[in-house]
Computed example of a mutant assay.
Amino acid sequence: MFEGAEIHLPLFLDHQSTTPLAPEVRDTLFQTYEQPGNQDSLTHAFGHAARQTVQKAKRHIAALISAHADEIIFTSGATEANNLALFGLVTPPYAGKQVITTPIEHSSILSPLKEMEKQGLTVTFAAVDGQGRVSLTDLESKISGQTALVTIQSANNEIGTIQPLSRIAALCAAHGVPFHTDAVQAAATEKIDASLPGLTALSLSAHKLYGPQGIGALFIRRGTSLSPTLFGGDQQNSRRPGTLPTALIAGFGTAAKLAHQNRDHDHHSLASLAQRLRDILIQNPHVDVRFNGDPDNRLPGCLSLTFGRIEAEDLILEMPELAISTGSACLSSSGGPSHVLTAIGLSPEEAGRTVRIGLGRYVTETECAFAASIIVAAYERLLKTQ
Protein backbone atom coordinates (compact mmCIF):
# COMPACT_ATOMS: atom_id res chain seq x y z
CA MET A 1 0.00 0.00 0.00
CA PHE A 2 1.14 3.56 -0.74
CA GLU A 3 -0.88 6.67 0.03
CA GLY A 4 -3.88 4.44 0.65
CA ALA A 5 -3.67 2.68 -2.72
CA GLU A 6 -2.51 -0.82 -3.56
CA ILE A 7 0.56 -0.91 -5.81
CA HIS A 8 1.10 -4.01 -7.95
CA LEU A 9 4.79 -4.84 -8.13
CA PRO A 10 7.00 -4.74 -10.03
CA LEU A 11 5.72 -1.46 -11.46
CA PHE A 12 6.24 -1.25 -15.21
CA LEU A 13 7.87 2.07 -16.15
CA ASP A 14 9.57 1.18 -19.42
CA HIS A 15 6.95 2.21 -21.97
CA GLN A 16 9.55 3.37 -24.52
CA SER A 17 10.64 -0.27 -24.86
CA THR A 18 7.11 -1.64 -25.19
CA THR A 19 3.61 -0.94 -23.95
CA PRO A 20 1.08 -3.28 -22.31
CA LEU A 21 -1.84 -4.46 -24.40
CA ALA A 22 -4.88 -2.24 -24.14
CA PRO A 23 -7.86 -4.32 -22.89
CA GLU A 24 -9.76 -3.46 -26.08
CA VAL A 25 -6.83 -4.75 -28.14
CA ARG A 26 -6.75 -8.00 -26.18
CA ASP A 27 -10.45 -8.49 -26.90
CA THR A 28 -9.91 -7.84 -30.60
CA LEU A 29 -7.07 -10.37 -30.76
CA PHE A 30 -9.06 -13.15 -29.11
CA GLN A 31 -12.14 -12.49 -31.23
CA THR A 32 -10.12 -12.53 -34.44
CA TYR A 33 -8.16 -15.65 -33.53
CA GLU A 34 -11.47 -17.50 -33.12
CA GLN A 35 -12.18 -17.12 -36.85
CA PRO A 36 -9.92 -18.85 -39.41
CA GLY A 37 -9.24 -17.02 -42.60
CA ASN A 38 -6.52 -15.80 -44.94
CA GLN A 39 -7.23 -12.47 -46.61
CA ASP A 40 -5.94 -13.89 -49.90
CA SER A 41 -8.46 -16.77 -49.82
CA LEU A 42 -11.27 -15.19 -51.78
CA THR A 43 -13.21 -18.33 -52.65
CA HIS A 44 -15.08 -18.45 -49.32
CA ALA A 45 -16.61 -16.28 -46.61
CA PHE A 46 -13.74 -16.72 -44.14
CA GLY A 47 -11.24 -15.23 -46.58
CA HIS A 48 -13.54 -12.33 -47.36
CA ALA A 49 -14.01 -11.68 -43.61
CA ALA A 50 -10.25 -11.68 -43.07
CA ARG A 51 -9.77 -9.21 -45.92
CA GLN A 52 -12.41 -6.91 -44.46
CA THR A 53 -10.68 -7.11 -41.07
CA VAL A 54 -7.33 -6.14 -42.63
CA GLN A 55 -8.86 -3.27 -44.59
CA LYS A 56 -10.63 -1.94 -41.49
CA ALA A 57 -7.35 -1.98 -39.57
CA LYS A 58 -5.60 -0.18 -42.44
CA ARG A 59 -8.18 2.59 -42.28
CA HIS A 60 -7.66 3.06 -38.53
CA ILE A 61 -3.86 3.14 -38.91
CA ALA A 62 -4.05 5.52 -41.84
CA ALA A 63 -6.39 7.82 -39.91
CA LEU A 64 -3.91 7.96 -37.03
CA ILE A 65 -1.28 9.53 -39.30
CA SER A 66 -3.55 11.35 -41.81
CA ALA A 67 -2.72 8.94 -44.62
CA HIS A 68 -4.65 6.84 -47.14
CA ALA A 69 -5.32 3.18 -46.40
CA ASP A 70 -3.60 2.06 -49.61
CA GLU A 71 -0.39 3.76 -48.43
CA ILE A 72 0.01 1.31 -45.52
CA ILE A 73 2.29 -1.74 -45.87
CA PHE A 74 2.26 -4.21 -42.98
CA THR A 75 5.58 -5.50 -41.63
CA SER A 76 6.74 -7.63 -38.71
CA GLY A 77 7.62 -4.50 -36.75
CA ALA A 78 9.41 -1.18 -36.88
CA THR A 79 12.84 -2.67 -37.56
CA GLU A 80 11.57 -4.29 -40.74
CA ALA A 81 9.67 -1.13 -41.67
CA ASN A 82 12.84 0.95 -41.30
CA ASN A 83 14.85 -1.57 -43.32
CA LEU A 84 12.15 -1.69 -45.98
CA ALA A 85 12.31 2.09 -46.27
CA LEU A 86 16.09 2.25 -46.48
CA PHE A 87 16.69 -0.63 -48.88
CA GLY A 88 13.54 0.08 -50.86
CA LEU A 89 14.09 3.81 -51.39
CA VAL A 90 17.88 3.78 -51.81
CA THR A 91 18.63 1.36 -54.60
CA PRO A 92 22.00 -0.16 -55.45
CA PRO A 93 24.57 0.52 -56.71
CA TYR A 94 25.25 2.79 -53.74
CA ALA A 95 28.43 4.45 -54.95
CA GLY A 96 27.79 8.13 -55.59
CA LYS A 97 24.68 8.19 -53.39
CA GLN A 98 24.24 9.82 -49.97
CA VAL A 99 21.85 9.28 -47.06
CA ILE A 100 21.58 11.97 -44.39
CA THR A 101 20.56 11.03 -40.87
CA THR A 102 21.44 12.03 -37.28
CA PRO A 103 23.80 10.40 -34.76
CA ILE A 104 20.92 9.73 -32.34
CA GLU A 105 18.80 7.46 -34.56
CA HIS A 106 17.61 4.03 -33.49
CA SER A 107 19.92 1.08 -34.23
CA SER A 108 17.42 -0.23 -36.79
CA ILE A 109 18.40 2.79 -38.90
CA LEU A 110 22.09 3.09 -38.06
CA SER A 111 22.96 -0.61 -38.42
CA PRO A 112 21.67 -1.08 -41.99
CA LEU A 113 23.23 2.24 -42.98
CA LYS A 114 26.60 0.89 -41.81
CA GLU A 115 26.15 -2.14 -44.05
CA MET A 116 25.13 0.04 -46.99
CA GLU A 117 28.16 2.25 -46.33
CA LYS A 118 30.41 -0.79 -46.77
CA GLN A 119 28.90 -1.15 -50.25
CA GLY A 120 29.72 2.41 -51.28
CA LEU A 121 26.95 4.55 -49.78
CA THR A 122 27.95 7.87 -48.22
CA VAL A 123 26.28 8.30 -44.82
CA THR A 124 26.26 11.88 -43.53
CA PHE A 125 25.19 12.98 -40.06
CA ALA A 126 23.33 16.23 -39.48
CA ALA A 127 24.36 17.81 -36.19
CA VAL A 128 22.17 17.74 -33.09
CA ASP A 129 22.45 20.08 -30.13
CA GLY A 130 22.79 19.23 -26.44
CA GLN A 131 19.04 18.58 -26.24
CA GLY A 132 18.99 16.27 -29.26
CA ARG A 133 17.37 18.74 -31.67
CA VAL A 134 18.62 18.49 -35.25
CA SER A 135 20.18 21.60 -36.75
CA LEU A 136 18.09 22.48 -39.79
CA THR A 137 20.85 24.77 -41.05
CA ASP A 138 23.39 21.97 -40.90
CA LEU A 139 20.93 19.52 -42.43
CA GLU A 140 20.26 21.79 -45.41
CA SER A 141 23.96 22.48 -45.92
CA LYS A 142 24.59 18.75 -46.31
CA ILE A 143 21.92 18.11 -48.94
CA SER A 144 23.46 17.75 -52.38
CA GLY A 145 22.72 16.34 -55.78
CA GLN A 146 23.86 12.95 -54.44
CA THR A 147 21.34 12.87 -51.60
CA ALA A 148 19.05 9.88 -52.11
CA LEU A 149 17.25 10.03 -48.76
CA VAL A 150 16.96 11.91 -45.47
CA THR A 151 15.90 9.74 -42.53
CA ILE A 152 15.30 11.32 -39.11
CA GLN A 153 13.31 10.07 -36.12
CA SER A 154 10.11 11.85 -35.17
CA ALA A 155 11.00 11.48 -31.49
CA ASN A 156 14.00 9.92 -29.82
CA ASN A 157 13.49 6.69 -27.90
CA GLU A 158 16.02 7.48 -25.16
CA ILE A 159 15.71 11.18 -24.36
CA GLY A 160 12.26 11.87 -25.80
CA THR A 161 13.21 14.89 -27.91
CA ILE A 162 10.72 15.58 -30.72
CA GLN A 163 12.08 16.79 -34.05
CA PRO A 164 10.43 19.55 -36.16
CA LEU A 165 8.97 17.19 -38.75
CA SER A 166 7.06 19.79 -40.74
CA ARG A 167 10.17 21.93 -41.20
CA ILE A 168 12.32 18.94 -42.15
CA ALA A 169 9.70 17.76 -44.64
CA ALA A 170 9.42 21.24 -46.16
CA LEU A 171 13.19 21.46 -46.48
CA CYS A 172 13.34 18.07 -48.21
CA ALA A 173 10.46 19.02 -50.51
CA ALA A 174 12.25 22.21 -51.51
CA HIS A 175 15.30 20.19 -52.55
CA GLY A 176 13.36 17.31 -54.10
CA VAL A 177 14.80 14.77 -51.66
CA PRO A 178 12.76 11.85 -50.21
CA PHE A 179 12.25 12.01 -46.45
CA HIS A 180 11.60 9.03 -44.16
CA THR A 181 10.82 9.25 -40.46
CA ASP A 182 10.77 6.59 -37.77
CA ALA A 183 7.59 7.67 -35.96
CA VAL A 184 7.43 4.67 -33.63
CA GLN A 185 7.82 6.58 -30.37
CA ALA A 186 5.72 9.58 -31.32
CA ALA A 187 2.55 7.97 -32.68
CA ALA A 188 0.92 7.27 -29.30
CA THR A 189 0.90 10.86 -28.01
CA GLU A 190 1.85 13.22 -30.84
CA LYS A 191 -0.04 14.30 -33.95
CA ILE A 192 1.71 12.79 -36.96
CA ASP A 193 0.77 14.14 -40.36
CA ALA A 194 1.89 11.87 -43.19
CA SER A 195 0.27 14.21 -45.70
CA LEU A 196 3.03 16.78 -45.19
CA PRO A 197 4.56 17.71 -48.55
CA GLY A 198 8.02 16.19 -48.64
CA LEU A 199 7.30 13.26 -46.32
CA THR A 200 7.79 10.08 -48.34
CA ALA A 201 7.78 7.22 -45.83
CA LEU A 202 7.01 6.68 -42.15
CA SER A 203 7.51 3.69 -39.84
CA LEU A 204 5.15 2.50 -37.09
CA SER A 205 5.04 -0.31 -34.54
CA ALA A 206 1.92 -1.61 -32.81
CA HIS A 207 3.58 -2.53 -29.52
CA LYS A 208 4.63 1.07 -28.89
CA LEU A 209 0.99 2.20 -28.82
CA TYR A 210 -0.62 -0.52 -26.67
CA GLY A 211 -0.96 -3.03 -29.49
CA PRO A 212 0.55 -6.50 -30.01
CA GLN A 213 4.20 -7.25 -30.59
CA GLY A 214 5.19 -8.67 -33.97
CA ILE A 215 3.33 -6.26 -36.24
CA GLY A 216 4.31 -2.89 -37.68
CA ALA A 217 3.69 -0.81 -40.75
CA LEU A 218 5.41 1.38 -43.29
CA PHE A 219 3.59 4.32 -44.82
CA ILE A 220 4.69 4.90 -48.41
CA ARG A 221 3.28 7.92 -50.21
CA ARG A 222 1.19 7.16 -53.28
CA GLY A 223 3.30 7.07 -56.41
CA THR A 224 6.54 6.22 -54.59
CA SER A 225 8.50 3.26 -55.95
CA LEU A 226 10.32 0.71 -53.82
CA SER A 227 13.21 -1.31 -55.24
CA PRO A 228 11.56 -4.25 -57.04
CA THR A 229 14.67 -6.42 -56.81
CA LEU A 230 14.45 -6.91 -53.05
CA PHE A 231 11.00 -8.34 -52.55
CA GLY A 232 9.34 -11.48 -53.86
CA GLY A 233 5.75 -12.65 -53.74
CA ASP A 234 2.59 -10.88 -54.79
CA GLN A 235 1.20 -9.88 -51.41
CA GLN A 236 0.63 -6.20 -50.59
CA ASN A 237 1.08 -5.16 -54.23
CA SER A 238 4.40 -7.04 -54.37
CA ARG A 239 5.92 -4.61 -51.87
CA ARG A 240 6.33 -7.03 -48.99
CA PRO A 241 5.81 -10.82 -49.25
CA GLY A 242 4.20 -13.14 -46.73
CA THR A 243 0.77 -14.13 -45.47
CA LEU A 244 -0.67 -11.32 -43.38
CA PRO A 245 -1.30 -12.11 -39.67
CA THR A 246 -4.96 -11.11 -39.53
CA ALA A 247 -5.34 -11.11 -35.74
CA LEU A 248 -2.19 -9.05 -35.14
CA ILE A 249 -3.28 -6.57 -37.79
CA ALA A 250 -6.73 -6.34 -36.20
CA GLY A 251 -5.11 -5.64 -32.83
CA PHE A 252 -2.90 -3.01 -34.44
CA GLY A 253 -5.96 -1.38 -35.94
CA THR A 254 -7.76 -1.23 -32.60
CA ALA A 255 -4.64 0.19 -30.92
CA ALA A 256 -4.37 2.86 -33.63
CA LYS A 257 -8.06 3.74 -33.23
CA LEU A 258 -7.62 4.12 -29.46
CA ALA A 259 -4.45 6.18 -29.89
CA HIS A 260 -6.28 8.49 -32.28
CA GLN A 261 -9.16 8.92 -29.83
CA ASN A 262 -7.02 9.27 -26.69
CA ARG A 263 -3.97 11.10 -28.05
CA ASP A 264 -4.61 14.52 -26.50
CA HIS A 265 -5.77 13.06 -23.19
CA ASP A 266 -2.79 10.70 -23.02
CA HIS A 267 -0.38 13.51 -23.85
CA HIS A 268 -1.63 15.83 -21.10
CA SER A 269 -1.98 13.02 -18.55
CA LEU A 270 1.56 11.77 -19.12
CA ALA A 271 2.98 15.29 -19.02
CA SER A 272 1.32 15.80 -15.63
CA LEU A 273 2.62 12.49 -14.28
CA ALA A 274 6.14 13.22 -15.51
CA GLN A 275 6.10 16.66 -13.92
CA ARG A 276 5.11 15.21 -10.57
CA LEU A 277 7.93 12.68 -10.70
CA ARG A 278 10.40 15.38 -11.72
CA ASP A 279 9.24 17.69 -8.93
CA ILE A 280 9.67 15.04 -6.26
CA LEU A 281 13.22 14.25 -7.40
CA ILE A 282 14.32 17.83 -7.93
CA GLN A 283 12.93 19.06 -4.62
CA ASN A 284 14.74 16.38 -2.63
CA PRO A 285 17.99 17.94 -1.36
CA HIS A 286 19.74 14.57 -1.19
CA VAL A 287 19.25 13.64 -4.85
CA ASP A 288 21.72 14.93 -7.44
CA VAL A 289 19.93 14.51 -10.77
CA ARG A 290 19.58 16.29 -14.09
CA PHE A 291 17.22 15.64 -16.99
CA ASN A 292 18.26 15.12 -20.60
CA GLY A 293 16.51 16.14 -23.80
CA ASP A 294 14.45 19.10 -24.89
CA PRO A 295 12.39 20.32 -21.90
CA ASP A 296 9.62 21.65 -24.13
CA ASN A 297 9.50 19.58 -27.31
CA ARG A 298 9.51 16.08 -25.89
CA LEU A 299 7.53 12.91 -25.45
CA PRO A 300 5.48 13.58 -22.32
CA GLY A 301 6.14 10.24 -20.62
CA CYS A 302 9.84 9.80 -21.43
CA LEU A 303 12.31 10.84 -18.73
CA SER A 304 16.08 10.52 -19.12
CA LEU A 305 17.77 11.11 -15.76
CA THR A 306 21.50 11.40 -15.10
CA PHE A 307 22.38 10.93 -11.43
CA GLY A 308 25.44 12.14 -9.60
CA ARG A 309 27.94 9.59 -8.25
CA ILE A 310 25.70 6.53 -8.64
CA GLU A 311 25.93 4.07 -11.52
CA ALA A 312 22.68 3.44 -13.35
CA GLU A 313 22.99 -0.33 -13.17
CA ASP A 314 23.57 -0.19 -9.40
CA LEU A 315 20.54 2.02 -8.97
CA ILE A 316 18.33 -0.27 -11.03
CA LEU A 317 19.48 -3.34 -9.10
CA GLU A 318 18.66 -1.50 -5.87
CA MET A 319 15.06 -1.01 -7.04
CA PRO A 320 13.53 -4.40 -7.97
CA GLU A 321 10.11 -2.82 -7.38
CA LEU A 322 10.51 -0.76 -10.59
CA ALA A 323 10.94 -1.85 -14.19
CA ILE A 324 13.06 0.88 -15.78
CA SER A 325 16.04 0.79 -18.13
CA THR A 326 19.41 2.33 -18.85
CA GLY A 327 18.37 3.23 -22.41
CA SER A 328 17.14 1.59 -25.57
CA ALA A 329 15.94 -1.97 -25.03
CA CYS A 330 17.59 -2.92 -28.34
CA LEU A 331 21.01 -1.84 -27.01
CA SER A 332 20.70 -2.57 -23.28
CA SER A 333 23.13 -5.51 -23.51
CA SER A 334 25.71 -3.84 -25.77
CA GLY A 335 27.99 -2.92 -22.87
CA GLY A 336 29.07 0.46 -24.24
CA PRO A 337 27.76 3.92 -23.46
CA SER A 338 24.59 5.04 -25.22
CA HIS A 339 25.36 6.59 -28.61
CA VAL A 340 22.42 8.94 -28.08
CA LEU A 341 23.71 10.28 -24.77
CA THR A 342 27.29 10.72 -25.99
CA ALA A 343 26.01 12.45 -29.15
CA ILE A 344 24.28 15.13 -27.04
CA GLY A 345 27.45 15.75 -25.05
CA LEU A 346 27.39 13.40 -22.07
CA SER A 347 30.66 11.75 -21.16
CA PRO A 348 30.78 7.94 -21.06
CA GLU A 349 30.78 8.19 -17.27
CA GLU A 350 27.68 10.39 -17.26
CA ALA A 351 25.97 8.06 -19.72
CA GLY A 352 26.71 5.24 -17.31
CA ARG A 353 24.82 7.11 -14.59
CA THR A 354 21.72 7.64 -16.71
CA VAL A 355 18.41 5.81 -16.50
CA ARG A 356 15.30 6.05 -18.63
CA ILE A 357 11.78 6.06 -17.19
CA GLY A 358 8.87 5.55 -19.57
CA LEU A 359 5.42 6.39 -18.22
CA GLY A 360 2.31 5.06 -19.92
CA ARG A 361 -1.45 5.31 -20.28
CA TYR A 362 -2.28 3.06 -17.33
CA VAL A 363 0.22 4.48 -14.81
CA THR A 364 -1.53 6.35 -12.00
CA GLU A 365 -0.50 9.46 -10.13
CA THR A 366 -0.07 7.42 -6.95
CA GLU A 367 2.16 4.93 -8.75
CA CYS A 368 4.22 7.81 -10.05
CA ALA A 369 4.72 9.20 -6.56
CA PHE A 370 5.54 5.70 -5.31
CA ALA A 371 8.20 5.30 -8.01
CA ALA A 372 9.77 8.62 -7.08
CA SER A 373 9.91 7.59 -3.40
CA ILE A 374 11.60 4.30 -4.34
CA ILE A 375 14.19 6.11 -6.47
CA VAL A 376 14.98 8.57 -3.68
CA ALA A 377 15.34 5.81 -1.08
CA ALA A 378 17.52 3.66 -3.34
CA TYR A 379 19.74 6.60 -4.25
CA GLU A 380 20.23 7.54 -0.60
CA ARG A 381 21.08 3.94 0.35
CA LEU A 382 23.72 3.71 -2.37
CA LEU A 383 25.26 7.04 -1.36
CA LYS A 384 25.76 5.73 2.15
CA THR A 385 27.75 2.74 0.87
CA GLN A 386 30.31 4.92 -0.92
Rank of each mutant, 00 (worst) to 15 (best):
A371F: 14
H44C: 11
R309P: 00
Y379P: 04
R356C: 14
V25L: 09
L29E: 11
G301M: 14
A343E: 09
E321C: 05
T254E: 15
E321Y: 08
T326D: 05
A63K: 14
R276D: 10
V123Y: 06
L86H: 05
K208W: 03
V340M: 03
G47R: 11
I249Q: 10
I282M: 07
T243I: 14
A187L: 04
S332H: 13
T246R: 09
G251T: 06
Q52N: 11
Y210F: 12
P285A: 13
T364A: 04
Q386D: 13
L113S: 08
D234H: 13
H48F: 06
E140M: 03
A62M: 06
R240M: 15
T75Y: 01
G327F: 05
K191V: 14
V355E: 03
L209N: 12
H339E: 05
E117M: 13
S227P: 01
L244H: 00
P228H: 10
A169E: 11
A378L: 05
T147I: 08
L273S: 02
A201G: 10
H175A: 14
M1A: 15
L110H: 06
L13R: 06
A155L: 02
Q98G: 01
Y210C: 12
V184D: 10
L149R: 01
A312N: 04
Q39K: 07
I61E: 13
L317V: 03
L315R: 08
T200Y: 03
S338W: 11
T181Q: 08
Y210N: 15
Q236A: 12
G145A: 14
T200N: 05
A173E: 04
P285D: 11
L248F: 06
N82F: 02
H268A: 14
S347R: 04
T342S: 14
A173D: 02
G336K: 15
L13E: 12
L139R: 01
T364M: 08
I249R: 05
V340F: 02
I357Q: 05
K97M: 03
A85I: 02
E190C: 13
Y362L: 09
E3R: 13
I357E: 07
L202D: 07
A351T: 10
L209P: 03
I316S: 03
Y33H: 03
P10E: 12
P20W: 11
L209E: 07
L204K: 10
I280L: 09
I61C: 12
G253I: 00
R263E: 12
T342M: 08
G96F: 01
I374N: 01
A148V: 00
A127R: 07
T254L: 04
C368A: 09
N262V: 00
R361Y: 13
K208E: 00
T19V: 11
L244T: 09
S166E: 13
P212H: 06
I65C: 04
F219T: 01
A377N: 12
I152D: 02
A217F: 06
L196C: 00
I143Y: 04
E158L: 06
Q39S: 13
G345V: 08
N157R: 09
L64Y: 02
S325Q: 12
D182I: 06
P36A: 00
L226Q: 07
S41P: 01
G130A: 13
A67T: 00
P10D: 13
T224H: 09
N82T: 05
A256I: 02
G242H: 08
N297V: 01
